[in-house]
Design a protein around this nucleic acid. Sequence first.
DNA 1: CGGCTGACGATGA
DNA 2: GTCATCGCCAGCC
Length: 113
Amino acid sequence: MSLPKKFYDNIYQIVKKIPFGRVTSYGAIAKALGSKGSARIIGFAMNKSHHIPDIPAHRVVNRIGVLTGKHHFKSIKEMESRLNQEGIKVINNKIQNFQKHFWDPISELTEFN
DNA sequence: CGGCTGACGATGA
DNA sequence: GTCATCGCCAGCC
């Protein structure tokens, strides 16, 4: 409550806006926040979001579509399993046609506003 | 207050 | 195309 982390809060806002069957990258979110250099911070924020049920972290992967954060999930299989449920094919921990499923917050939201 | 961490990204070889 | 290294920048110890 007091002193809300604007950066982290912004990240959660965007991640929660990711539509079903879509994925995005840490760099895309970071850039949407105006700090493309803080792509790593996005992952950090995800760790803090572990107690937040509305954070589809499984829809957030790195720029190449690899499920880098799956190991941080309750179950490693859960991340790729959830993506499969959304119609996203994950082979070798990498999203197939990643660019096709890629959801750019800047293009869709035109700034998180 | 100083330094390390980290679910990344870009660039160079 | 792949592999290695540097840079980023907020949070945390």
